[in-house]
Structure formats: C-alpha cells, structure tokens
Amino acid sequence: MYKYRDVEGYYDLNDIDAFIFEKFCEKFYDVWEFPQKVAPVRIFRVEECNLNYLRVDLKDGDWLHIINDRGKIEWY
C-alpha cells in the first residue's frame, strides 16, 4: 500500500488538506495500472490570485492540481 504520509510536505498540510490528499491518493492509485511510476513525491498548498489548490508533484516530473469541489475531490 502507498504511504501518503511519506510524501514531502504532508506534515505541513492542515487537517483538511491532509484529508483531501489522502482521498486523492486512494482515487489516484485506483486509476493507474503502475502507480509506482508516477507516485506523488511532494505536496503543498498554492494560494495565488483567486486560485487555491493543492499541488502534487509526481515522480515522473508532472504535477497536478487537486481541488475540493463541494466535497468532491478532483484533479487535473
């Protein structure tokens, strides 16, 4: 099982963001056939202009926005 608490920045998240990241990891790992190749390596909150989201950097160099849209965890 993936250890989301080992991701850099996890312990800097507030309780709500930590919960969102945990739910993201559950969904994320259900989608990928080989999730270890794109595993999250860093997570942090971004607050700029009118944008607030969690940014997760992946092992393969890509990164994703994670948002909580009225209780539904989405990423793009």
Results as ranks from 00 to 15, higher is better:
residue 1 M to G: 14
residue 74 E to S: 11
residue 2 Y to C: 07
residue 1 M to N: 15
residue 22 E to P: 10
residue 48 E to I: 02
residue 26 E to W: 13
residue 72 K to H: 00
residue 36 Q to W: 14
residue 24 F to Q: 03
residue 66 I to N: 02
residue 66 I to C: 03
residue 17 D to I: 04
residue 53 Y to G: 06
residue 50 N to M: 02
residue 38 V to G: 09
residue 16 I to H: 02
residue 32 W to Y: 14
residue 52 N to C: 06
residue 23 K to F: 07
residue 61 G to M: 11
residue 53 Y to C: 02
residue 58 L to Y: 10
residue 37 K to G: 11
residue 69 D to P: 11
residue 74 E to A: 08
residue 42 R to G: 12
residue 6 D to M: 12
residue 29 Y to R: 15
residue 52 N to W: 10
residue 37 K to L: 15
residue 11 Y to D: 15
residue 62 D to V: 05
residue 68 N to R: 01
residue 31 V to F: 14
residue 16 I to Q: 03
residue 26 E to V: 06
residue 31 V to R: 10
residue 33 E to Y: 12
residue 54 L to G: 06
residue 73 I to F: 03
residue 53 Y to S: 01
residue 58 L to H: 05
residue 36 Q to G: 11
residue 6 D to V: 06
residue 61 G to H: 05
residue 12 D to S: 09
residue 74 E to D: 02
residue 38 V to H: 07
residue 6 D to Q: 14
residue 27 K to P: 05
residue 17 D to W: 04
residue 50 N to W: 11
residue 76 Y to F: 09
residue 41 V to D: 15
residue 26 E to I: 11
residue 73 I to S: 00
residue 50 N to V: 08
residue 64 L to W: 02
residue 39 A to G: 13
residue 70 R to D: 02
residue 5 R to G: 09
residue 36 Q to A: 12
residue 41 V to R: 05
residue 72 K to S: 08
residue 72 K to A: 07
residue 64 L to T: 07
residue 25 C to N: 13
residue 7 V to Q: 03
residue 19 F to A: 06
residue 10 Y to F: 11
residue 15 D to K: 10
residue 37 K to F: 14
residue 35 P to T: 02
residue 51 L to I: 06
residue 67 I to F: 12
residue 66 I to Y: 04
residue 9 G to P: 08
residue 1 M to K: 15
residue 27 K to A: 04
residue 56 V to D: 11
residue 48 E to L: 01
residue 25 C to A: 10
residue 51 L to Y: 08
residue 39 A to T: 11
residue 50 N to H: 06
residue 30 D to N: 14
residue 74 E to H: 05
residue 54 L to A: 08
residue 66 I to E: 02
residue 42 R to W: 03
residue 52 N to A: 02
residue 72 K to E: 07
residue 1 M to W: 15
residue 54 L to S: 08
residue 29 Y to K: 13
residue 43 I to G: 12
residue 16 I to E: 07
residue 47 E to W: 05
residue 52 N to H: 09
residue 59 K to N: 15
residue 52 N to M: 04
residue 73 I to R: 01
residue 22 E to V: 01
residue 60 D to E: 13
residue 39 A to Y: 08
residue 54 L to R: 08
residue 21 F to R: 07
residue 57 D to V: 03
residue 71 G to S: 02
residue 45 R to H: 02
residue 45 R to N: 07
residue 3 K to D: 14
residue 67 I to T: 01
residue 57 D to G: 04
residue 47 E to V: 07
residue 53 Y to E: 08
residue 56 V to A: 06
residue 13 L to C: 00
residue 32 W to D: 13
residue 2 Y to W: 12
residue 69 D to F: 11
residue 68 N to T: 04
residue 69 D to S: 00
residue 38 V to A: 12
residue 40 P to V: 10
residue 2 Y to H: 13
residue 3 K to H: 15
residue 58 L to N: 13
residue 38 V to P: 04
residue 10 Y to N: 10
residue 70 R to H: 07
residue 35 P to A: 05
residue 57 D to A: 00
residue 28 F to T: 01
residue 2 Y to D: 12
residue 13 L to Y: 06
residue 6 D to S: 15
residue 37 K to Q: 14
residue 45 R to C: 09
residue 40 P to H: 09
residue 37 K to A: 10
residue 29 Y to Q: 14
residue 24 F to V: 08
residue 26 E to D: 13
residue 45 R to I: 09
residue 70 R to K: 11
residue 67 I to E: 01
residue 29 Y to T: 12
residue 33 E to M: 10
residue 70 R to V: 07
residue 18 A to Y: 01
residue 75 W to C: 01
